[in-house]
Design a protein around this nucleic acid. Structure first.
Length: 501
RNA sequence: GGGUCGGUAGCUCAGUCGGUAGAGCAGCGGACUUUUAAUCCGUUGGUCGGGAGUUCGAAUCUCCCCCGACCUACCA
């Protein structure tokens, strides 16, 4: 009895697929399955662009024959004539298939094709009664069989998980998804162009590091068999890029993946894309100017505008971005706090403890201010805002301020409450850097898993002399989220990390 | 980790007070030569996320577990 149930359910689960496999078997029997000799010459969008202005009479007087191919998205059979809508890279176009034109045999075969199948069509353009530009099929061929049914034609694929797990299906069904990833490509292209046209050299540095460096994060670890040594997927390209500046590549950038073995969230994916750039004889104020330029340029290229909506709220990149210290930002957005309070380490400790923030002994004033900023203000920085002058103790690669060695010449850029970029005047004093690494190594020994390693190789490079340099990283995924109005980082990564099914 | 919501046919979803499973689309059979989510007639298809319990009887109630979305926290 249980055997019967199992068999029945297996059949049920696959009955649509089984039906299509049977059709595929019939197709194979003709000896013409999966041909690749159809020469597609036209794209739907281009056809519409060129001929949608032509009247029915004009198309009759000067016939335009096209060869299009694409996936059947809709099928309406009315006896001896049918309409299908096919989808290709340029959009959709309607095809009229009449038995009189394609022949009895071909038409009978066509009637058995399914939504999702890929076809090639040859024939002239005409206009239907309702004036829709349509291809009249003189010839129609099945090019590829779809064994799995597409989601329901009206509602499409709405399940978020399925959209992420089966991006191919999401792209077939959702115009919005196609748009987002085309926009992503344009944004990346525009940034690359902007950098190159400003004299930056694009480089590729290792993704496998013997010592993970350049950021404070937990790395993914792997192992090289031949060398029998551990390797880490990079958490940032920073140290390698600065070695290139030592080497005389004074303006470099790298646009590629980083990997961080940390929590996932709507704003965090374990692998994510950064554009990091370094410029000799620059410093953090110039970097902020340049970063603003990069963002405005990519917005213009992707959207044609510097002012747009994000999640129903206006975002304006056209005005100069605010530049505030953490204390200034807190006082601007949380006027109940005074300068005296925010400069009083004991008061901050008390406040933060009351807010249930975990404090470690030895935290300096700057770090306490940072925590206060994160706790009270960061999420409200909707308009683009550079927060400047980060505490040295959490910025081990940044140059200290001449006026106050406790702080560094560093900024983070926040937009819609999210960190989008992070940059600073680089620490190019090898002895200072060695001391900072020592402090990090000590923190790591004390159990801070995100503290940096002591990187002797990097110190040696600095000892050859790094010119005064500014460097910055821009989170490309988060930028794409802004420019495509996407609420979740997974919406802008083609194949986001998912728990296995 | 915490909270909220959810998991029912291939897809999108209903399912009342606990009474033994429904629609649309897709599929299959039929009608139809200008449709637009085509239409019309007929029809196949279910481990109701999993397990245990309560009950004469559970998609429905209880408990445990799994999976997901969103929020929140953590991860600068």
């Amino acid at each position: 009895m249980s055997d019967q149930t199992t068999t029945a359910s297996e059949q049920d689960e696959n009955h649509i697929i089984a039906e299509r496999r049977a059709k595929l078997a019939e197709w194979r029997a003709t000896g013409k399955a999966y041909p690749n000799d159809f020469e597609r010459e036209n794209i739907s969008g281009k056809i519409i662009e060129l001929y949608d202005s032509k009247t029915s009479e004009e198309l009759e007087a000067n016939p335009v024959e096209v060869k299009v191919a694409g996936r059947i998205m809709l099928k309406r059979v009315m006896g001896k004539a049918s309409f299908i809508t096919i989808s290709d890279v340029g959009g959709r176009i309607q095809i009229y298939v009449a038995r009189d034109k394609v022949g009895e045999e071909e038409y009978a075969a066509f009637k058995r094709w399914d939504i999702g199948d890929i076809v090639g069509v040859v024939g002239p353009l005409f206009r239907t009664k309702t004036n829709e530009l349509t291809v009249q099929a003189n010839d129609i061929r099945l090019l590829s069989k779809s064994l799995r049914p597409l989601p329901e034609k009206f509602h499409g694929l709405t399940d978020q998980e399925q959209k992420y797990r089966m991006r191919h299906l999401d792209l077939i069904m959702n115009e919005q998804s196609r748009f987002t990833f085309v926009a992503r490509s344009r944004i990346v292209q525009s940034i690359r162009n902007y950098m190159c046209s400003h004299g930056f050299l694009e480089v590729e540095t290792p993704m496998m590091h013997p010592i993970p460096g350049g950021a404070s994060a937990r790395p993914f670890m792997t192992h090289h068999n031949a060398l029998d040594m551990p390797l880490y997927l990079r958490i940032a390209p920073e140290l390698y890029l600065k070695k290139l500046v030592v080497g005389g590549f004074e303006k470099v950038f790298e646009l590629n993946r980083n990997f961080r073995n940390e929590g996932m969230s709507p704003r965090h994916n374990p692998e994510f894309t950064m554009m990091e750039f370094y410029e000799a004889y620059s410093e953090y104020h110039k970097l902020m100017d340049f970063t603003e330029g990069v963002l405005r340029h990519s917005a213009r290229e992707a959207l044609g505008a510097e002012v747009f909506e994000y999640q129903g709220r206006t975002l304006d990149l056209s005005k100069p971005f605010d530049r505030l210290t953490m204390v200034e930002a807190i006082m601007k957005y949380r006027p109940q706090y005074t300068l005296e309070q925010l400069n009083d380490a004991d008061w901050l400790r008390q406040r933060l403890t009351a807010m249930k923030v975990e404090l470690k002994p030895g935290m300096g004033l700057g770090t306490l201010q940072l925590l206060m900023f994160e706790e009270t203000t960061e999420a409200d920085l909707w308009d683009p805002t550079f927060i400047i002058d980060y505490p040295a103790e959490i910025s081990p690669l940044a140059r200290s301020s001449d006026a106050n060695p406790e702080i560094t010449e560093r900024f983070e850029l926040f937009i819609v409450g999210r960190e989008i970029a992070n940059g600073f005047s680089e620490l190019n004093d090898p002895e200072d850097q060695a001391e900072r690494f020592m402090a990090q190594a000590k923190a790591k020994d004390a159990g801070d898993e995100e503290a940096m390693y002591y990187d002797a190789d990097y110190i040696r490079a600095l000892e050859y002399g790094l010119p005064p340099t500014g460097g910055c990283g821009i989170g490309i995924d988060r930028l794409v989220m802004l420019l495509t109005d996407s609420p979740n980082i997974r919406d802008v990564i083609l194949f986001p990390q998912m728990r296995p099914e």
